[in-house]
Design a protein around this nucleic acid. Sequence first.
DNA 1: TCGAGTCTGTCGCGGCGCGGACATTCGAGG
DNA 2: CCTCGAATGTCCGCGCCGCGACAGACTCGA
Lengths: 231, 231
Amino acid sequence: MEPKTRWANVLRTGRWFRELTPGLQQALLEHGVACTLAPEQPLFARGDPPCGLYAVLEGSVRIRGLDSAGRESLLTIAEPPSWFGEISLFDRAPRTHDAIANAQTTLLKVPQDVLEALLLREPAYYRELALLLTAKVRLLMQQVEDLATMPLGVRLARRLLHMSQGYGEFGPLGRKTLEVRQEQLGAMLNASRQSINTQLKEFASAGLLRVAYGRIELLDVDGLKKTADLA
Amino acid sequence: MEPKTRWANVLRTGRWFRELTPGLQQALLEHGVACTLAPEQPLFARGDPPCGLYAVLEGSVRIRGLDSAGRESLLTIAEPPSWFGEISLFDRAPRTHDAIANAQTTLLKVPQDVLEALLLREPAYYRELALLLTAKVRLLMQQVEDLATMPLGVRLARRLLHMSQGYGEFGPLGRKTLEVRQEQLGAMLNASRQSINTQLKEFASAGLLRVAYGRIELLDVDGLKKTADLA
DNA sequence: TCGAGTCTGTCGCGGCGCGGACATTCGAGG
DNA sequence: CCTCGAATGTCCGCGCCGCGACAGACTCGA
């Protein structure tokens, strides 16, 4: 199969891309170029100038911040078919986070200038691209509020469900196996590895999930949702 | 002076509005209608359908979330000339937060359907409106990361500076007097009133600011910035 | 098959910060 | 001027959670 057709099939598994105007779908595929990264290879860093919009086709990318003391704050792990990099696309301002390949990774890259030229011809596409922004704002707002009001268990359950559902890109039926290390969950939820571990074991003994080496298998998604809804 | 001229003068004190295309500035003023609220009067609530885009002309509006246990999480206090409500404008999805007048308040309201009709004629305006979204995303991301890595003192200093500068709407020279209660600062920073009080007194004894009843006066903005930059 | 590096599991100590309690101060309205 | 409600100032005890430490488990490549 021609690569672009394969890519299109991957991207169409995501809600955002699937619901785009056909013209925009085609334009993104047409102007996109493949881009491969070795594990731990950086794609861009906080403060870099805008370089384009990306979609994950294979592998995964960590979107993280690094404070002066070297502590890592993990915003998310982008997996197929997630899109990222749209903030700098809109405001042409520097990158807010580092993007680093989490494994052998293939990306679709739509360069900044190409995309801006397209948007000059078809400014109505701005609204569809802005849906990436609104989705991100809504997630972030919930995250800020949860951090303020919810105990760790609830936040962990919600994050696991979000990851399982590709942060809304999939339907409610998501992946059952999450490849994530407990340390990374801690960096996402503002908690220590030890606290994450304790909470995971609690979920495990309640039959909600099973913890393995570098992997979490969700067993009772409905039970997790109940935990996520109320403390 | 004609009201609309007065409004224009207020709105032009804000960076976002001032840098808009003249045509969009004029259209927002033209299609906007005044809207007054009594203290504590709700404007919209979490879950409400989209109703339009708002700008604060006089007074202030609390943007807040309320969890099931009744704890208030305060996202921000919008003061002139802040704009809010743009998320639902883009994705036509329900409101994420409650908006409640903090005092006697005058708003400029641009109704959803009027604005959508305008954007159908001039889709290039979508990009300029999206700058409201990117500003919000950048603030939220910093907030999430600060919550994870920064001690309360740094977060408080940063928030005070942000409030003083209208969250980026003013230049670096901002208001010197903030009308905010310590309990509200706590709800914004995910801290208790007591902790906020202790930290404020520490700043006061360092000569950075002065605390008064329902009010904080910034004395040494540069000193605050130093505190905000590094713990 | 074996070893090194990485990830998970668990304990104890210590500290930040929440919550309750209560005195004090401020401001508005009668 | 007085009174009441609201906001500030301060103390204390408890609990959650971060951190250091270390043992066990797993993976991968030599």
